[in-house]
Amino acid sequence: MAQLTELTKDQSYAIADSLAQASNLVLELRIREREALTPDERALLEQYEDHLDQMVALFRAYGIYLTAAGAEQARGDIEGAIAKGKLQLKRIADIKAAIVAAARLVDLGAAILSRDPFAIGEAAASLRAKPKKDVPG
């Protein structure tokens, strides 16, 4: 088994708090756009919000462990990616793009739980990528 590196309690709590803020942004979006959302979009946003809340609880209760190789880079990726995801949720007027941003935050949380710095890097890169505009069709 690969050696694990535990983030400090402060680092784990900072990541958990940031994900909690992201979850709150998803909630605010869901409330603000409730008239414009389809039932499926509403359910999807609520599901992502719930996933983020569950991850926050896990990170606060058990801390965050990463595989030792690349752990420091992964920690930096996590913080930057969450910040980017929150910024996207705040700025995005397009509901579909906001749903994608929420999904990518959930993916990042799942990558953190996997403890795999490569997966974290991939999820972080996905969040850093510029949101795609919907193609009219």
Rank of each mutant, 00 (worst) to 15 (best):
E6F: 11
D10Y: 06
D10N: 12
D10T: 13
S12A: 15
Y13Q: 12
A14P: 07
A16V: 06
L19E: 03
A20V: 06
Q21Y: 07
Q21S: 07
S23Q: 13
N24E: 12
N24A: 13
E28K: 15
E28V: 10
L29D: 08
L29Y: 07
E33D: 14
R34Y: 13
T38G: 11
D40P: 02
E41H: 09
E41T: 07
E41V: 04
A43S: 14
L44M: 13
E46Y: 09
E49S: 12
H51T: 04
D53T: 09
L58S: 13
L66Q: 01
L66A: 07
G70T: 03
A71Q: 07
Q73C: 04
Q73M: 04
Q73E: 15
Q73H: 08
Q73V: 10
R75W: 06
G76D: 02
E79V: 10
G80T: 07
A81W: 02
A81I: 02
A81S: 13
K84V: 12
Q88V: 09
L89C: 05
A93E: 15
A93S: 15
A97I: 03
A98H: 01
A98C: 10
V100G: 02
A102F: 08
A102L: 05
A102H: 05
D107G: 06
A111G: 06
I112Y: 03
I112C: 01
S114T: 12
R115W: 08
D116P: 10
F118N: 05
L127P: 00
L127T: 00
K130R: 15
P131A: 09
K132G: 05
V135N: 12
G137E: 14
